[in-house]
Design a protein around this nucleic acid. Structure first.
Lengths: 361, 361
DNA sequence: TTTTGTTCGTAAGGTTCACTAACAAACATG
DNA sequence: CATGTTTGTTAGTGAACCTTACGAACAAAA
């Protein structure tokens, strides 16, 4: 650990404070961080010269003393490109502000597996061209198992095994690129923009079922970078539907969108349809109860089609969860839909870039 | 972040390197840490003057050049006191070396709940008196939910609710005291002394069932410091034995020592007894499968009576676990007994002190 | 035995970083 | 207008680590 590392830490501390609390004066930053005004001035001058921070005008004087010059992240001066590879038939890309707002949005049809990388490169290039501001970096949320350096260890949909997606994109685009699992990206978005607590599990329901987990605000990677792969965990001890993986009663066989819609279509009455959703919610609760017990997660966030997840399914999940964990500790566990909608992976990809380039999270 | 924090970090880095790799020269430390020989000399001089490090003699020259002076942690010059409050009828205390070896061991009968604190203070004082070397600190593994500052938020056995055990002991003993949950302490011992990987779940089976979890080498605390409380998670969807908590089919009702011994005593034949153990192992596997899926834990360690856990129970647990998780990722999950025996909580308490006082883990 | 080259540890001096002290600028208030 | 407050900068100090240089101690080769 060298002194320059400490300075990097302090730079990130300032950027993070501005990111979360908005524009403020150098003196405010001094009070907020505990560093002296002198040091703040020095760091801010460096950050301004690097283009990350800008002076945005005087604060109208509200008391005695010299009026303050407000500084803030140069939010208008930078953009982030986010790419969501988790869709079942489209690739979604977007230009986002530092606050995670989507400025430009673009979709392309999912090509054949071999052409995916070239399509992503082309999409990213067009988004960079449309950004009208320097792009801080490119974040990618991809299905499958992704290691800490953006190498896709396994992604059955695309046939990738040990493929260095991050490196390939970085070389082609000449920009900083970060690749992570889609559900792991999503939970970052929920934490940074969705106001979730620091111990949160996000369940992403789509063609498959995956999850992302933060504990103490830190993403859990797992021993083989496979944390979150709960889709093929067997749920319950009473059988269940057959899964594409060959086993019986996987969570994915109960909860994935194709499985749910098929069972809903087969259901005749509204009551039967609600029963299908309640069954799925119960299975989710059964699967998550041991995780809640072992990790003391306080919040479970669902991401996916709201017409399926929001309602009986979520209600039954929280009910089952409370019935199957010790009320004393886990009574407060909440289950809710994300409010990030369809953009959650894009926004999570943006958080990855913010975190990687600015140290903000 | 100030420069002196960086120096503290570097001090801990040296102590940690010596702790794990044993005695070496200043030049070795320089190569190992990346700091220059000059800086190492300066830091080591400080650590020697503080009494944490000692020169232990020359290395016999094996090649050209000036022979090296070896330095090492002053292992003989310090002791740690560990206390295990998780026993059902005794309190165990010990004096340990920095390497986690028990030097002095002492047991006292568990007194009434009100007298526990005074008994612990008395036990700790007598151990400190027997230590024959300066005591670095006192570590305590306690049942129940313990927060990050050693306040016991809930411990039904002792009737503690929001009781500042760490503060009480620190005041009475005048020594640095650290208190944590017993299973969380145990998993630290397994990581530091038992050679487990950095993503490991320890299940502690005794009067109750608890767990401790490391992910990436970091202890998981949970949103309410209740991580690891898996004893009263319902397992399976086919009922099960009644639990003292009022629910049906809790993991504790299947797996705790009292529950297991009662069912073993009721079993007539050896085959029936093995069936009891296999059932319990299966339940453990069912409960842990979602945790393994969500966290990608690579190793599960069991702590408790080996005559119950080691054998059919552990075998069935790993079998069930593999059947219920996706083989592709979690095939390698291992289930094994700890080799730390009965001292695991004591040694874990020692690790807490090492970590708190030296930054070693 | 002498020379050469290697390795260890220390000394001296320079750079980086954040701190303290002091001060000018700009404002509100009595 | 004088006074006090707040902001931000300049100047100087101390801490921490670095680079450079050197003496000590040894092995191997001449």
């Amino acid at each position: 650990m060298l002194p320059e590392h400490a300075r990097g830490h302090n730079r990130s501390l300032l950027l993070q404070t501005l990111f979360h609390q908005g524009a403020m004066s150098r003196a405010d930053l001094s009070r907020e961080t505990g560093l002296t005004r002198v040091t703040i001035s020095d760091l801010i001058a460096e950050l301004i010269s690097d283009g990350f921070v800008a002076e945005i005008g005087m604060r109208e004087a509200s008391g005695p003393g010299k009026p303050a010059m407000l500084v803030d992240l140069d939010r208008a001066g930078h953009r982030i490109v986010g790419i969501d590879l988790s869709g079942s038939d489209v690739i979604i890309g977007a230009v986002l502000t530092l606050d995670g707002d989507v400025v430009v949005r673009s979709e392309v049809a999912l090509p054949s597996a071999e052409a995916v990388v070239d399509t992503v490169i082309e999409l990213a290039r067009s988004l960079v061209a449309d950004s009208h501001a320097p792009v801080l970096g490119v974040g990618v949320g991809a299905p499958g198992v992704v290691d800490g350096r953006g190498v896709v260890l396994a992604a059955p949909n695309f046939g990738w095994v040990g493929f260095d997606l991050e490196g390939s994109l970085q070389e082609a685009l000449g920009l900083s690129v970060l690749v992570a699992n889609d559900a792991n990206a999503a939970v970052l978005a929920e934490y940074t923009f969705g106001g979730s607590g620091a111990d949160v599990l996000l369940v992403k329901v789509g063609r498959g079922v995956g999850s992302g987990l933060l504990s103490g605000g830190q993403p859990m990677r797992g021993a083989h970078f496979a944390a979150g792969e709960i889709g093929h965990v067997t749920v319950g001890t009473d059988g269940g539907p057959a899964c594409v993986c060959g086993k019986i009663g996987c969570l994915e066989a109960w909860l994935s969108v194709p499985a749910l819609t098929a069972r809903l279509d087969a259901a005749g009455t509204d009551a039967e349809r609600e029963g299908v959703l309640r069954d799925a919610g119960e299975r989710l609760g059964i699967a998550l109860a041991p995780v809640v017990g072992a990790l003391d997660v306080s919040e479970i966030v669902l991401s996916g089609p709201p017409e399926l997840l929001d309602g009986p399914l979520a209600e039954q999940a929280v009910e089952t969860l409370r019935a199957r964990t010790l009320a004393q500790f886990h009574d407060g566990v909440r289950v809710r839909m994300t409010e990030q909608g369809q953009d959650i992976v894009l926004r999570g990809a943006a958080v990855m870039v913010l975190s990687g380039q600015l140290g903000v999270s």
